[in-house]
């Protein structure tokens, strides 16, 4: 599957990011499609606690751990020990563990990272032609 990069407001020329449309499922309910950041530098997937609220998951009762940003600063995450399903182009992938955080920046409320995402598919960032090539394993 091929997905184009997304151009967002930035300084004079805008900024291009690898966001792809993904629908999330949890226990029989599902979301609209979201543009989700594909982040090879993230150890694991992180989602805004708004997504937990949407699925009626009581995230404040989940175990709290810390994630560290690139500058070493910690932020909160709450770990759900069951799968969230990410539907990409009709393919369904089980993402686990699921980290919910109330501290994600507004531009990146949904991040798919290495653990249990990059090992489920082959992802090639072809930025030179504004394309993300994703193949489910």
């Amino acid at each position: 599957m091929n997905f184009p990069y997304v151009k967002l407001p930035g300084d004079t020329r805008g900024v291009l990011k690898p966001y792809i449309p993904i629908r999330y499922h949890y226990k029989g309910s599902f979301t609209k499609e979201f543009l989700t950041l594909i982040d090879s530098g993230a150890d694991a997937s992180h989602f805004t606690t708004q997504l937990a609220d949407f699925f009626h998951i009581d995230w404040k009762r989940l175990p709290e751990l810390k994630t560290f940003a690139a500058n070493g600063e910690p932020f909160r995450r709450y770990v759900l020990d069951s799968s969230l399903v990410a539907e990409i182009g009709g393919h369904k992938l089980n993402i686990k563990p699921v980290n919910f955080s109330p501290d994600l920046a507004g531009a990146f409320p949904l991040i798919l990272g290495q653990e249990n995402f990059f090992d489920l598919c082959r992802i090639t960032f072809e930025r030179y032609k504004w394309n993300i090539d994703l193949k489910i394993r």
């Binding site: 967002l8 930035g10 499609e33 979201f34 530098g41 920046a105 531009a107 990146f108 949904l110």
Partner: peptide, 16 residues
């Protein structure tokens, strides 16, 4: 039908 996109005042100069 629609696709949901996060709205932010800044998308640039992040290291994630």
């Amino acid at each position: 039908e629609g696709v949901l996109v996060p709205a932010a005042d800044n998308y640039q100069n992040f290291v994630t």
